[in-house]
Design a protein around this nucleic acid. Sequence first.
RNA 1: GGCCUGGUAGCCAAGUGGUAAGGCAGAGCUCUGCAAAAGCUCUAUACGCCGGUUCAAUUCCGGCCCAGGCCUCCA
Length: 533
Amino acid sequence: MTESAASPLVLYDTLSAGKKPLELLEPGRCKLYVCGPTVYDMSHIGHARAAVVPDVLVRFLRASGIEVLFVRNITDVDDNIIRRAATEGISVDAVTSKYTAAYHEDLGALHCLRPDIEPRVTDNIPQIVALIERLFAAELAYASDGDVYFRVARFAGYGALSKRNLDDMQAGARVEINERKESPLDFVLWKGAKPGEPTWDSPWGPGRPGWHIECSAMSLRHLGETFDIHGGGRDLIFPHHENEIAQSQGACGPGTFARHWMHNGFIDFAGEKMSKSLGNFFTIREVLALYLPEALRYFLLGVHYRSGLNFDVEVPCPGCGQLLTPEQQKPGSTCPSCAAPLELARLRAQVRFPGLEEADERVAYVYDTLARCERALAVVAPNPEDGVPNDVSPAVAGMLSAFVAALRDDLNTAAAIAALSESLREVNRQLEFKKKPDIAARRPTLVRFLADMGVVSQYLGLFAEDPATYLRQRRDRKAARQRLDVAEVERLLRMREDARAKKDWKEADRLRAELGLLGVTPQDTAEGSTWTL
RNA sequence: GGCCUGGUAGCCAAGUGGUAAGGCAGAGCUCUGCAAAAGCUCUAUACGCCGGUUCAAUUCCGGCCCAGGCCUCCA
């Protein structure tokens, strides 16, 4: 107990390149900064992963009794935003508010907790200017023709996070020639104003902040000079986080800033990095139009957060159903086996994600088990023996501690989820004994299971819905996707039940065939008939 | 070219100096008017290649091959 209070979690730290116990600056309190989105477009599933990973971290820490101060920024000034405003023919403000709202909506659907503070760059211009002034005072900043740059050569230790030295970077530099910079490695802190762009006044003239300075300024404002954990996607290690360190430590001194660096791996498609071609770029919304959010969340948590996550996409030919390679999916081409024309819209409409389908069925299995469990318990009255711990089956009794132990070790959600399997199976095994006395004897196990799964759902942000409701939603969503008239299905199903009651098998089978034409399969259970797709 | 990851059964994916979680797929069983669905049971001599250290290596070290990432905006 005391040990876990001292270090609730062992986390991989990018800077020291190894796992280390999380030691909080202030016992019981954790200050966390995560790089948030630049709001100029819909978020894709890579953003979803970058949000879900810290979300589990926050949930874990809070479940461990730690008070978490979670800050995640919104970048609302940048080249992409300005460009987007031009192409959409709307203001910069309209762009950022539109995509900020969409971001919140998407993450909300994925059960991500909102950060405690969500600062925007445009609300922090004075803080940014003040920080740049401190860098001037330290001779780490210089003005040049309206811009302000960071003098990288002057900051000892540059490259520590990304494990490279200045010589390596000089050698492999693919940096554009910029006459205004003293060195190609220097990066911009303040961009001089250009016509038509949002600008703010500063001691160096009108302009707007560079990308990296905002995170240094906002973390300083809300978390102080030094805080516990800084997170973000792997790609941000260089140059973004490297530059943040240079700025923040340059201004506040050695030993300040983030004590722990956490980076999540990428999602890739068939081994390739996600890009905006047909087969391998999907927004959260596109995916959620096809699958329930919990399926996506489960899928994302099924792999360790530092690993790459392979997101398989199957694109069948609309004509013959044959799977198409990315090469064959190019717009304007025809199917190699049936010569059907391949239009982008039709292809995208019937894309399949095998990994998500597997996840979806797994989530349904868990909810099914929970539902069965609740039903069984509703039938049996509690008895005084319930509290006896020995009555709980070992698999179920050990589930929660195995689950938490896996998370404690570098947030291993894959292992944690695997730790649930044994008791899920055990509970279903016990549920197979249908006779009342047997169920009564197993009551302690079922009660314990439900209680512990409630805790699990707090950690994972999964399995928290009412099981029956979830399962109904899942079926209705599938029905909607196939444009099915649920009322009609229910009517046919009732007719078939009547026929079965009269043992009119011929009529019952005829109705089954009729339902089959709709794509519906009736299922006869002890409690009556239901249906699936 | 520089830096950095990773290569575990048909597929996905944890993990470990003493002979390897979990999921999918596969087989069987139960249930059922027949089915279906679901649940349960079972299943695989799987740790890229070559050396080295060790009583013992998939796990450590070196080399090689392969894949990917970063070095420019990027979750």
